[in-house]
Lab assay of single mutants.
Amino acid sequence: MASQGTKRSYEQMETDGERQNATEIRASVGKMIGGIGRFYIQMCTELKLSDYEGRLIQNSLTIERMVLSAFDERRNKYLEEHPSAGKDPKKTGGPIYRRVNGKWMRELILYDKEEIRRIWRQANNGDDATAGLTHMMIWHSNLNDATYQRTRALVRTGMDPRMCSLMQGSTLPRRSGAAGAAVKGVGTMVMELVRMIKRGINDRNFWRGENGRKTRIAYERMCNILKGKFQTAAQKAMMDQVRESRNPGNAEFEDLTFLARSALILRGSVAHKSCLPACVYGPAVASGYDFEREGYSLVGIDPFRLLQNSQVYSLIRPNENPAHKSQLVWMACHSAAFEDLRVLSFIKGTKVLPRGKLSTRGVQIASNENMETMESSTLELRSRYWAIRTRSGGNTNQQRASAGQISIQPTFSVQRNLPFDRTTIMAAFNGNTEGRTSDMRTEIIRMMESARPEDVSFQGRGVFELSDEKAASPIVPSFDMSNEGSYFFGDNAEEYDN
């Protein structure tokens, strides 16, 4: 783990906690998980779902989305002020799938948001429990990260689609708070800032007046979040320049895209947490497990152990491969979309394939898809080993990566060399080191050039047997250095459309 220093740990961010010791953190995270579980059980009762239907990941996603929508204050306010045809701002819903006479049927349900809020609060001892809501947002974000390569979004903001390893959390809503900021990748933060800068260039009043003052505060806050992700002084200094700019424009845009590229080699610290679907927490609570009393951590053995003992089902389209669908969801559960496939294969105990080789589309089923041909199958979400999630980018030494994705962002704290394609990355730096950030740029390029592919990161860190909950005997895996390590390699994943 990167030293926490003055930073709060993510469990504290996750639970809005002030400084807590490890036991208190485990208890408050457990409380959050228990609340999600209780809410899910109650919703299944309301909807009269069978046990099997309640364990269907598509039903879980609909129920999670309903509660997130019920608590989305800004959108609710907007919907009330701008009524649109056929949208009731006070209601929320989605597809629920039921097994009827041996076939899967889709039923569109509609609930009062007020009623959903009441059920959620009741499951969370009367609190709004925003930490639990954020947790579900991060699960949705991790699922998107594993399912889609955001080529269009990258290109629109002047970045290269091969930089997708920097895009963790790119679909997280803005209201996801400190826990959300911690899991956002460098590219995601750059993209958010670039969008602001572009608006400022096109709209003279963007930075002016009372609204402009708020915009400015948001801009500086985002700059500080991004600065905190960088691990070298030169990158941090460049972020200070971007933040202090009187009138952010093209120079800042250039600096930010430069920094994003540099992060492929001088990786930023991005938190990883295993956020599971509500249909995993519900049955665990129903079986009598007391998360608050037992304590829970999002970055240790607990999620692995929970998945070892969970039964989750998914709808499967006619030509999809259930094992591939399982891999997709497994990666999402562990926030591992940008991790090295060699490491993932070792931990999972079966070969993890790149996205383009998977015969599976996303987990969600569109409303126009034919239910007649839908089957369902068990998702295999178990693992051979477990490993500690990392909050750091690993040290800054790398190795060759593949054509589709030119770097990785480690999820697990496991000893290995970190793949990246130096030639491709360095070719993108057209040696432009003039301007006010020239000395920093020169320094950053120097550090990137001296990074050695064969150097090892996370020295001495290994994986653990599932029986080793105290992480007492690390097993340090050895990897084939020459092997392909990137998930979005030469990829044809669908595009994420909101």
Rank of each mutant, 00 (worst) to 15 (best):
M1C: 13
A2C: 01
N21D: 12
M32E: 03
M32D: 01
G35R: 11
I36W: 12
I36E: 10
I36T: 11
G37T: 06
L47Q: 05
K48H: 03
L49P: 05
R55E: 08
R65S: 09
M66W: 04
M66C: 14
S69H: 02
R75E: 08
L79V: 08
L79R: 05
H82E: 11
K90R: 05
R98W: 13
N101M: 01
K113C: 09
K113M: 09
R117D: 08
W120V: 04
R121F: 05
A123N: 11
M137K: 10
G158C: 11
M159R: 03
Q168S: 15
A179N: 12
V183A: 15
V190Y: 04
K198Y: 12
R204L: 08
G212T: 13
A218C: 05
Y219G: 02
R221T: 10
N224Y: 13
L226Q: 10
G228H: 00
M238Y: 03
D240T: 12
N247S: 14
N250F: 07
L264M: 15
G268N: 02
S269K: 07
S269M: 09
H272D: 06
K273A: 02
S274W: 06
C279R: 03
Y281C: 12
A286V: 12
S287R: 15
D290M: 04
G295Q: 08
L298V: 06
S310D: 01
A323T: 06
V329A: 07
W330T: 00
A337H: 05
D340F: 02
R342E: 06
L344I: 12
G349I: 02
K351R: 13
R361W: 06
G362T: 03
G362L: 03
Q364P: 13
Y385Q: 14
S392D: 02
G393H: 10
G393P: 07
T396E: 02
T396S: 15
R400C: 09
A403T: 15
A403G: 10
I406P: 00
Q409G: 08
S413R: 10
Q415R: 10
L418N: 02
G431N: 08
G431Q: 05
R436V: 05
E443Y: 06
P453T: 12
E465G: 13
S486H: 09
Y487F: 11
D491N: 13
D497S: 08
